[in-house]
């Protein structure tokens, strides 16, 4: 039994005045609030140590908020997890790639929540695994040990696991680390298709330049929500500088360096040492410049 599509008019994730404190007294998240709706892709952006992973852990019930409330699909986190609504795609460096599991074993792990005590796979479980592998184009490699895959293939295996699970809310941690540009495009296409089927996808990333390519929404985070909203209005130079303080590399080219005439437009490059964000236009009217990407 797969959890069905979430109602589009109600928040898939609601975070309301949430503060999270660690046992050593450090406040990792302070009074954060936001709502995310189904059928969207949202980027979660912030410096290292800004509490992004803490937020993920809170959404998955690892950590209980000291104040405030988190609800997922209108339910308590624990109840949403029991229904398999939340799927998690780990960061590559958090996975032991020598672990003795094959591609199909990893995807089958997405079905454990649907199985009985002994975790014996039913026909439906096998069908879900087959369909998920087919969907991400990994059927041919299903008998490979997971360490024998490229960076992009590894990512696709874990996305297939999320699909097999039937997760409607997918949390992705740094999906593009160690992935080449062509594979990145393939993964983005897959994420878009998953969004169009009504899923909410929350992506934590440092890759600022990719965000306008595939995200509809952005949350700029630094221990609390600095800004949240649609990419066009929220993913701006001013907000990024507020969220990152001075840690972004910031290059601006304008005036005679860029134009021979009095053209007031300028180029701004913002980067967290991954793919840079490039803005072009007049002051406060700059537009995102999406560099050409190879087509998959």
């Amino acid at each position: 039994m797969n959890p069905s599509r979430l109602p589009g008019d109600r928040p898939a994730i609601m975070v309301d005045g949430v503060s999270v404190r660690y046992a050593n007294g450090v406040t990792a998240i302070d009074d954060a609030s936001f709502r995310l709706f189904p059928a969207s892709i949202c980027a979660l952006v912030g410096v290292n140590g800004s509490g992004k992973s803490t937020l993920f852990k809170t959404l998955m019930g690892f950590l209980a908020p000291a104040k405030g409330a988190v609800s997922i699909a209108g339910q308590k986190v624990a109840d949403a997890l029991k229904q398999g609504l939340v799927a998690y795609v780990p960061q590559s460096e958090d996975v032991d790639w020598n672990f003795p599991v094959l591609v199909e074993d990893v995807v089958m792990m997405g079905r454990y929540g649907h199985m009985g005590l002994l975790r014996l796979a039913s026909k439906a479980d096998r069908a879900a695994v087959d369909a998920a592998l087919e969907r991400v184009g990994m059927s041919a490699l299903r008998h490979r040990q997971i360490g024998e895959l490229s960076g992009g293939q590894k990512k696709r295996v874990f996305l297939a696991r999320a699909l097999a699970q039937g997760g409607q809310i997918i949390l992705l941690d740094e999906p593009f680390t160690g992935v080449d540009a062509r594979t990145e495009t393939a993964i983005i296409d897959l994420l878009r298709a998953m969004r169009d089927e009504g899923r909410l996808i929350l992506v934590s990333t440092h890759n600022l330049g990719s965000i306008p390519d595939f995200c509809d929404h952005v949350i700029l985070f630094n221990r609390t929500v600095i800004a949240a909203g649609p990419i066009e209005t929220t993913f701006t130079e001013a907000n990024l500088i507020r969220a990152f303080g001075g840690v972004l590399r910031h290059v601006r080219i304008d005036g005679s360096d860029l134009h021979d005439d009095a053209d007031a437009r300028r180029v701004t490059v913002l980067t967290d040492d991954e793919r840079p964000l490039v803005l072009y236009g007049e002051r406060d009217r700059e537009k995102l410049v999406a560099p050409d990407r190879p087509k998959a």
Binding site: M60, G61, F62, A78, L81, K82, Q83, G84, V86, A87, Y88, P90, D94, V95, D96, F99, V101, M109, G110, Y112, G113, R161, Q165, L171
Partner: peptide, 13 residues
Amino acid sequence: LYCFDPAHARAIG
């Protein structure tokens, strides 16, 4: 599963 990916184990309840 717990040894391989505790976060996923938790996420599926």
